[in-house]
Nucleic acid binder design. Structure first.
Lengths: 345, 345
DNA sequence: CTGAAAGCGCTTACAG
DNA sequence: CTGAAAGCGCTTACAG
C-alpha cells in the first residue's frame, strides 16, 4: 500500500486510481467498481475492506474514464446567447441545479447570437459527447438544431421555438400576455400605440407583436408601427428617439423586453418627457428591478424559472429514452400593472 | 468504407471513430491523429487522403477519449456562488470566452454560499479532472481551497481573497473605493453615517468597511455602526428598517453592493423618506442600471470584466506550468457620484 | 514519414 | 459473490 507520506511529498501527485484501491483492498478492480456503483452484490466484508481503502487513499473516481467506459457522459449542453440578460443567467442557474439533482453536469455554450455561432457551439458540445441539448435562445430558422433533431438527438427548446413544429418545446403564452398588455393600454384611452421589438426572426418577438396587434384589430384600431432592433444595448434608446420624431407620436409604447422598456424610458426621461403622463410604457419579462419603487414598470410576467425547470425535466426524460411529447408546453404570462402605463398604482 | 446511406438510416448512429477514418483513408490511426493534431509531419498526399476521409465521414473527434489519452482535460473549473447577481454572470461570461480562446472549456460550479457546498463543488470538479480552478466568491476561510493550494494545484482567486496570503489573486481596490465614498459623504456634511454590509467573513466586505471607517477616523468622527447581513434578498430592506429605528438615525448609508443599496432605498421610499433629501445612499459595484435616470445611484465602480479576464489569464499560465505571481493584483475602484448621495448631478 | 502496440482509468459481459 | 479480460477512442513513445 502506498504510504501516506508519499502523497504529501509530491506536489500534484498522480491521482489515485481504482487500481490502487483494488490493490490496497486485495480485490479486483471489478469489485471496487461494483461497490462504487452498487451495480452488483458484494459481500459485506469485501465491501467494508474496499470502502476502507477508498477513504484511506482519498480515492476520487475519474469521471472522464467513467464516461469513456460507459459510452455516455451524463452531461447536457445548454446553449444560450449570453449571460448578461438576467433572464438567461437565471435560466442557466436553474438548469445547472436541475441537472445536478439527477447526477448530470451541464456545459454552457454561449452562442452570442452571431450567425454561425450556434452551429459552432453545437459542434463543440458534440465533441464533448453531451447526451442532449437545451436551447434557450433559438432563432426561428436554425439548421444546426434541425440537423440534431433529424438525427433523433435528445433536444429540448425553451423560451424561443423553431419555425418547424415537431420539436420538444416549453415556453410561455407570449401572445396572450401581449394581448392583455394592448387591451390594458386601449382601455386607458390610448389611440397612438407603437412597439419596440427585437429581431423579427425570434419566435418570442413574433408572438408578442402578433398578440399586441390582434388586440388592436379586435378594437378596430389600425396596426401599431413596429420598430425592430437587434436587442443590442442602446437599440431601444435609439428606437425611442426615432419613434418620437415621427409625425404621429405614440402616446404608449410596448417593448418586447423589460430591458428595452427601461432604455426607452431612459430616452424619454433624458428628453424631458413625463412617464406615464406624456408616454405610457409597458415591458415584458418582469425582471426583479421592475418592482422597485423608483421604477414600477408595467410589464408581462413570465416564469422563466419554471420554463427552465420543465425543460431540463423533459430533456432528462428524453435522454433516459422516454418518448417526449412533441407538443409545446405553454406557461402563463400575466400582465402586471404598475406605474409606467399610467393606469396602475 | 461505410456507405453514407447507413448514417441516414440509424437514428442516433454510433459516432464515427478515428478507426473509421483510418480505414477509409487506408492509414493507421496514428497517422490520422497526426494530421488532426499537427503533432508530427505527414506527407502531403497522405494528409489529403485523411482529410478527405474526415470530411466525407463528417468525423468529429471524441474529446473524452482525447482527455483520457492525454491525461489532461483542457478544462477549468469556475466556482461562483450563483448567477443571480449580474456581477457574477458577467464574470462567468468573460471566463468562458477567455478560456475558449485558448481552447479550454469551463465547467461552472455553483456553490450557493452554504457552508460545505464549496468543498462539494470542488470535489465534483476534481472528479471531472479539471486542470485548474477559478474562485470568484471565496470566503476568508476556505479549507477546501487551501487544500488545493497545498497540493500545488493551479488555483486563481478573483474578487474575494482568502485570509492566507500566498495565493494568486486579482481583485479591486475595495479599501480605496470605500474611503472615497466616505470622504465624499463627509464633505457633504453628513455626521451620522451607517453601513449595510454583507457577511463579515468575506474579504470584500471587510475591506470596504475598513476603508470606510478609516476615512471617518481620519476626519476625527466616531466609527459608523455596521449592520451585517447574509446578502439574501430582503436583508438590506430589513437592515434599513432596523437602522431607522435607532436613536441616532443615519443621514447617509453606505451599502457594500448596489443590490443592497437599491433595497435600502426601497425601504426608505416605501416609508415616505426622500432620497437624497432625508437619506443619502451610496452603493458599490456600479451595475448597469445604476446609471438609469430613474435611479442614478452614487456608487463605487469596479471593473469585474477585467478582473475576470486577468484571472483566467493567470490561471491559464499556471496550468501551462508558468510560475504565477503570488502577489495580489488590484484594479482601481472609482467613486461615481450621481444623485442618491445628494452631491451629484 | 508511417505503423504496431501500449496505455489512459474505468465498466461490463462472461465464467466460475 | 468475485476475477480475468476485453473494450471505450484516442495519443504517444518506440521502431523502422
Amino acid at each position: 500500500m502506498r504510504s501516506p507520506r508519499l502523497q504529501g511529498e509530491a506536489r500534484i501527485s498522480a491521482p489515485i486510481t481504482i487500481e490502487d484501491v483494488a490493490q490496497a483492498a486485495g480485490v479486483s478492480t471489478a469489485t471496487v467498481s461494483r461497490v462504487l456503483n452498487h451495480s452488483a452484490p458484494v459481500s459485506p466484508e469485501t465491501r467494508a475492506r474496499v470502502e476502507d481503502a477508498i477513504s484511506y487513499l482519498s480515492y476520487r473516481p475519474n469521471d472522464v474514464a467513467r464516461s469513456m467506459a460507459r459510452g455516455r457522459t451524463a452531461t447536457i449542453g445548454l446553449v444560450l446567447d449570453d449571460l448578461t440578460n438576467p433572464f438567461n443567467s437565471q435560466a442557466a442557474e436553474i438548469v445547472i441545479h436541475g441537472a445536478e439533482k439527477s447526477g448530470f453536469r451541464t456545459i454552457l455554450g454561449l452562442a452570442a447570437s452571431q450567425s454561425g455561432r450556434c452551429a459552432q457551439v453545437i459542434e463543440f458540445l458534440l465533441r464533448q459527447r453531451v447526451d442532449g441539448f437545451l436551447f434557450g435562445q433559438a432563432r426561428l430558422e436554425e439548421p444546426a438544431i434541425e440537423a440534431l433533431l433529424d438525427r433523433g438527438f435528445p433536444v429540448v427548446l425553451f423560451n424561443r421555438r423553431l419555425h418547424r413544429a415537431r420539436a420538444s418545446f416549453v415556453g410561455c403564452d407570449n401572445y396572450g400576455g401581449s394581448t392583455a398588455a394592448a387591451n390594458h393600454l386601449i382601455g386607458l384611452g390610448h389611440q397612438s400605440l407603437a412597439v419596440i421589438a427585437g429581431p423579427a426572426n425570434l419566435s418570442t418577438v413574433v408572438e408578442r407583436i402578433d398578440g399586441f396587434q390582434a388586440a388592436l384589430r379586435a378594437a378596430r384600431m389600425q396596426a401599431a408601427p413596429v420598430f425592430y432592433t437587434q436587442y443590442h444595448p442602446g437599440d431601444a434608446y435609439n428606437a425611442m428617439k426615432e419613434l418620437l420624431q415621427r409625425d404621429r407620436k405614440p402616446t404608449a409604447v410596448f417593448a418586447t423586453t423589460d430591458f428595452m422598456a427601461l432604455e426607452a424610458i431612459q430616452y424619454a426621461v433624458d428628453h424631458q418627457l413625463e412617464i406615464p403622463g406624456d408616454l405610457a410604457v409597458v415591458g415584458f419579462d418582469d425582471i426583479t428591478l421592475a418592482a422597485h419603487p423608483w421604477i414600477r414598470l408595467t410589464t408581462v410576467a413570465q416564469h422563466i424559472a419554471e420554463q427552465a425547470a420543465r425543460a431540463v425535466e423533459r430533456l432528462l426524460e428524453a435522454i433516459g429514452g422516454k418518448q417526449v411529447p412533441r407538443e409545446a408546453e405553454l406557461l402563463p404570462a400575466e400582465l402586471v400593472v404598475r406605474r409606467t402605463c399610467g393606469g396602475g398604482r
